[in-house]
């Protein structure tokens, strides 16, 4: 019967899942952030405490930096890779397979890989030590648990470039060669055809894919907890610390921080779409 009834009827099962699991979690989290504790009642205490805490703002700034830098780099590199991979060349199938192979690797595993590769006792540091370039782990530049979150951003870029690339490749496939070919036949150079015709056509897909990458890298916990510095922690790590604090009074603050993550993420993505729509 799927597809015959009213669209809303067909969508109902999926919408129910989203409404109950996602909406329900969001509503409970929001309620928890206004909770005054086990006695019941409502209060803004947790929000006031969270918003007046310098640590929260420093964590927010770090998370914004991580998400913006990861998204920008992943979009740029993903676009470049997609443009290269769309042409046919010998071994193109193999190249595409290698390009997308890390999509299946879980984030936590990828983050451990980054640790083994980039940390001060990691593979690169050992190579440098073996080659006599450095005389101890501390001499290797700090690329994980570092002030600029280089390890975290490196992980997200490594993981998300194929994601962006695949979405753009699928998009280019459905656009076909016609728009560019038409521009070329009117005398545009290949570069001008790409910049003035193909890129604007790809923009909506790039912004959508970028929004997904932004939301994930802004709100995910497992990568910064493995690769991040101790202070300030990324905002999701701070929320988790409050949630697992033995003091029950910290629970509403954990919920308020989680809601702050959702709110900032939603507002920024809304702004990106709105900016596109003008």
């Amino acid at each position: 019967m799927i597809g015959r009834g009213h669209p809303w009827a067909s969508l109902a099962p999926a919408l129910c899942v989203i409404a109950v699991l996602f909406g329900g979690g969001l509503a409970l989290g929001l309620a928890g952030s206004f909770g005054a504790g086990r006695g019941g009642g409502w209060s803004f205490e947790a929000w006031i405490a969270v918003l007046s805490e310098g640590r929260v703002w420093r964590s927010l700034a770090l998370s914004l930096w991580i998400a913006l830098a990861s998204t920008a780099l992943a979009c740029g590199l993903g676009l470049g890779a997609a443009l290269l991979l769309r042409r046919s060349f010998p071994g193109q199938g193999l190249a595409r397979l290698l390009f997308q192979i890390n999509l299946t690797i879980p984030h936590a595993v990828g983050a451990l890989g980054i640790l083994w590769l980039l940390s001060q006792s990691g593979f690169l540091a050992r190579l440098a030590g073996g080659a006599g370039l450095i005389d101890g782990p501390a001499r290797f530049p700090a690329l994980t648990q570092d002030h600029f979150a280089i390890g975290i951003i490196a992980h997200y870029v490594w993981k998300e470039v194929p994601f962006i690339g695949l979405i753009l490749l699928a998009n280019m496939h459905s656009l076909g060669d016609d728009p560019e070919a038409a521009a070329r036949s009117h005398g545009a150079t290949p570069f001008a055809a790409m910049r003035l015709v193909l890129l604007p056509l790809l923009m909506p897909a790039l912004i959508r894919a970028g929004a997904i990458v932004f939301a994930f890298s802004f709100g995910a916990w497992e990568v910064p907890v493995l690769l991040g510095q101790s202070a300030p922690p990324a905002l999701p790590v701070l929320a988790w610390q409050r949630f697992t604090d033995p003091d029950l009074a910290a629970r509403p603050e954990a919920m308020a921080i989680a809601m702050l993550i959702a709110l900032v993420s939603a507002l920024l993505i809304r702004a990106a779409f709105a900016g596109r729509g003008r």
Binding site: A138, A142, Q145, D146, H147, V225, G228, Q229, S230, A231, P233
Partner: peptide, 10 residues
């Protein structure tokens, strides 16, 4: 400390 104490293990 390690890393001049700018960060600590987590």
């Amino acid at each position: 400390l390690w890393r001049e104490g700018r960060t600590y293990p987590t």
